[in-house]
Nucleic acid binder design. Structure first.
Ligand SMILES: [Zn+2]
Ligand SMILES: [Zn+2]
Ligand SMILES: [Zn+2]
Ligand SMILES: [Zn+2]
Lengths: 163, 163
DNA sequence: CAAAATACGTTATAATGTAACATATTTGAA
DNA sequence: TTCAAATATGTTACATTATAACGTATTTTG
């Protein structure tokens, strides 16, 4: 019994995730599906220990490695991202909502963190990535992975602030 | 006795830092100077607890808040940066080596982390910053602070790898 | 000097993340 | 099908990073 069922929209995204995993020969097990579901249902980035609390509603006595292992898997599959500044995790909108055929592997992304409402927006902006690659190439640095996180105010929160 | 004296180059940078602080009416105390010195002498990013060990050579029994408070001050003054992916700190080359008149306040920077040798290079690339601002502006997001960190191989380590 | 502000000391604890090993489940080949 | 290997999960214990709260010392300012 994987128990806890999620909102319909979440279940759809979980089904997408399951297909992506199957497509590379990995398995979105009940546990991993449940952790991913908890990430997706949160309106904001969730910390590992919040997820652990969520898990414990279903599986009493679950311990940190359980959730960290699931998170590691989901990160490797490109289904979630870690927001470093927050030590917290968000679903990858690119992989789960988009119909990108190349989804389901880690990709460079940028995150906008609103300090007003806590919401995080994922960008996939080529301009930023290229600017980074240009700047690094001519000093001979080869980028393997990049983290781009901006803190500030989203449009809604800015309007409230200036009202 | 703030004790531990540093290499001459470091002392020069510490003197620069002291002038920058004085210029905005803050004080680079002995303790803060010592912590900054420890950061600058490390060839690589240093963790807070490594700094604590360094401090303890001079001041036995120093506790975490001592070093974290010094780090908070140095961050606010723009004398050091935190590398989020490493939970570690580096001196701001822009503020301490450059002769920038506007140094001494936090600024947007980018960090290149070499996974081969562990060295971190600070960039201050306008192209990256503008690309980020462009991408965010047309969705109405106002950037207040940005974190850009790239992992990869520096020129030296890449040459070794392909040899 | 005395009051206020700033910096530092000290104790305790919170929050995040992993190592190591035991058990269970799934997979794949004999 | 049956068993061995690979994969996934359970469990205990601990490592690492960071902060809260409160008391003392030092510096600044009137
Ligand atoms: Zn993504
Ligand atoms: Zn907002
Ligand atoms: Zn800098
Ligand atoms: Zn290198």
């Amino acid at each position: 019994m994987a128990g806890t069922s999620f909102a319909e929209k979440t279940e759809t995204r979980l089904d997408n995730a399951e297909r992506l995993c199957a497509a590379h020969g990995s398995r979105l097990t009940d546990l991993r599906r449940q952790v991913l579901g908890l990430v997706l249902e949160a309106a904001r980035p969730v910390g590992a220990y919040d997820l652990l609390d969520g898990l414990r509603a279903d599986k009493k006595g679950a311990a940190p490695p359980t959730v960290y292992r699931a998170l590691d898997f989901l990160l490797e599959e490109g289904l979630i991202h870690k927001i470093e500044r927050l030590s917290a995790f968000v679903g990858c909108t690119h992989a789960l909502d988009g119909s990108h055929t190349e989804a389901g592997h880690p990709h460079a992304a940028q995150f906008l963190i609103c300090t007003g409402c806590g919401q995080v927006t994922e960008l996939d902006d080529h301009g930023i990535l290229h600017a980074l690659i240009d700047a690094t190439r001519h000093i001979g640095f080869t980028v393997r992975h990049s983290t781009v996180e901006a803190e500030g105010l989203c449009a809604a929160c800015r309007d409230v602030a200036t009202a």
